[in-house]
């Protein structure tokens, strides 16, 4: 059913090797090699259009790479086999950029979606789990009957986060979680990512542009440029690496954000 890789080690949650992806004449990924360590918060950063979100979609199995492999806890991702994907995705949770809440369902039904679909829980057990999940993201049960359209941007992301962690994934991924949010909500969502990661002992991957919050939350940074990983390592290491592109992105972005403040 699943193929173990010979180079897999227990401290690697996701291993990406030689990933290439093109859309027509646009070569987005030109051979990405990346290891995501277990139990750490890894930020994947880079300029617009460098393929950060695409990498996340390939890890989730929504899009197949042209060339290359992705192993999750030693199991080979195969986007063409839904049953195998389903098996591997039990490890994965994802928070989409806009939450991607199901419009036709209430907040309760969104959070309870995978509990109802995949577990055989009673109504009272489901109620208790939903209440606990909403509480863990700072929302009260009073919101449970609301439709997603009645929530603010921050509340939608919190509900989506509660839904994503409902099945207790080992790896949680965030696709630009703070894009379009005000500074206060950005801080709240960032703290939530850190708290959820610590509370559930998750391997966390965050796709972000935001160099301001990265140094307070990230334990590991991967920087993408021209379809390749140009830097992987601890956040402070970006200032020591001799790469003009890395320096330009982090130094200029940080300076620009501080000037803006």
């Amino acid at each position: 059913m699943t193929q173990a890789t010979s180079s897999y080690t227990d401290d690697i949650a996701i291993r990406v090797r030689g990933l290439k992806k093109s859309f027509g004449s646009f070569h987005i990924h030109n051979g990405i090699d990346l290891d995501i360590p277990v139990g750490k918060v890894t930020y994947i950063m880079g300029g617009s259009g460098c393929g950060k979100s695409l990498l996340l979609k390939q890890i989730m199995g929504f899009i197949s790479p042209d060339v290359g492999t992705i192993d999750i806890f030693g199991e080979r991702m195969d986007a063409t086999n839904f049953q195998k994907l389903k098996h591997i995705r039990r490890h994965l949770g994802i928070l989409f950029q806009n939450g991607a809440l199901f419009d036709s369902l209430s907040v309760y039904d969104n959070v309870a979606f995978s509990l109802k679909e995949r577990l055989d829980l009673s109504k009272s057990e489901t109620d208790a789990r939903v209440e606990s999940l909403l509480k863990s993201v700072g929302l009260a049960m009073v919101h449970a009957t609301k439709a997603p359209s009645e929530l603010s941007g921050g509340q939608r992301k919190r509900v989506a986060l509660a839904r994503a962690v409902a099945m207790k994934p080992k790896i949680m991924m965030y696709d630009e979680p703070t894009t379009g949010l005000d500074p206060v909500t950005t801080m709240m969502v960032t703290n939530l990512i850190r708290d959820i990661s610590e509370e559930h002992k998750l391997t966390t991957i965050v796709i972000s542009h935001d160099t301001h919050v990265v140094f307070s939350v990230a334990e590991n940074i991967a920087f993408l440029k021209d379809g390749k990983v140009r830097y992987v390592g601890p956040p402070r290491g970006v200032f020591e690496v001799e790469d003009a592109d890395v320096e330009e992105f982090f130094v200029l972005e940080t300076r620009y954000k501080e000037e803006k403040k």
């Binding site: 995705r89 809440l101 979606f113 839904r163 099945m167």
Partner: peptide, 13 residues
């Protein structure tokens, strides 16, 4: 709005 991707991610076909 990525709701179909979210459904797949939650393990539902």
């Amino acid at each position: 709005t990525e709701q179909i991707d979210a459904m797949e991610a939650l393990g539902t076909d």
